[in-house]
Design a protein around this nucleic acid. Structure first.
Length: 197
DNA sequence: GCGACAG
DNA sequence: ATCTTGTCGC
């Protein structure tokens, strides 16, 4: 494992043009030092529809991916992977399209419920279950913060996904790749709207 | 029919 | 998802 990637998008709350600004970042897996980033914007796509997030975000994320200076060996995606009504969240979707291993890292639940208690301590975890099946894990990365929901994306086991997210926390709620991608996507949006003026 | 509902 | 400074708590 040499290079890690992070993927996220930024949108305006009410945007008639439905423009989605995407960003992908790459960082050294060892030091977590940023290696580069790329962005892309696209309008006229689908609106946000729970369960169909991949169809809205993957096309523009793939566009950003093509501009990356280095190909990541593993990508952390902001959103669910397997923890989805049809087992095909945006993380799985992106992984299949790019043919790159992915992990789903969501900030809230789409389907399922957390089984058991989740202590308010960093590292605490509990199964995310849906229809009598474990589809992911609720992981408290920081005490006092709402948990993250980690699930399989593409070609990565849940155990491995969990290990990565735990290792990339850096004392903050979001793992570094996703955190940087979120900031990058926000910059892509701000820059695009500034130029449009 | 009603409520839930990643970003 | 985004709007936003100060503020409450460890």
């Amino acid at each position: 494992m040499r290079v890690l990637g992070g993927a996220d998008v930024s949108t305006l709350r009410f945007d008639p043009t439905r423009t989605v600004h995407a960003a992908m970042v790459v960082l050294d897996a060892q030091s977590l030092a940023p290696l580069g980033e790329a962005g892309a914007s696209r309008s006229g796509g689908l609106p946000y529809i729970p369960g169909l997030l991949g169809f809205r975000e993957v096309p523009v994320l793939a566009e950003a991916f093509a501009k990356l200076p280095v190909r990541p060996d593993l990508i952390l995606v902001d959103g669910h992977g397997l923890a989805h009504p049809r087992g095909l969240g945006v993380a799985c979707h992106l992984g299949v399209v790019l043919d790159v291993p992915t992990i789903g890292v969501a900030k809230s639940i789409l389907v399922g419920r957390v089984q058991g208690a989740l202590p308010d301590e960093a590292g605490a975890q509990a199964p995310l279950v849906w229809q009598d099946r474990q589809i992911g894990v609720a992981l408290r990365t920081r005490r006092g913060a709402n948990p993250l929901y980690v699930s399989i994306g593409h070609r990565v086991s849940l155990a491995t996904a969990l290990r990565w997210v735990l290792a990339l926390g850096r004392g903050r709620r979001l793992p570094e790749p996703t955190r940087l991608a979120h900031e990058a996507a926000s910059r892509v949006r701000l820059a695009a709207t500034a130029i449009a003026e």
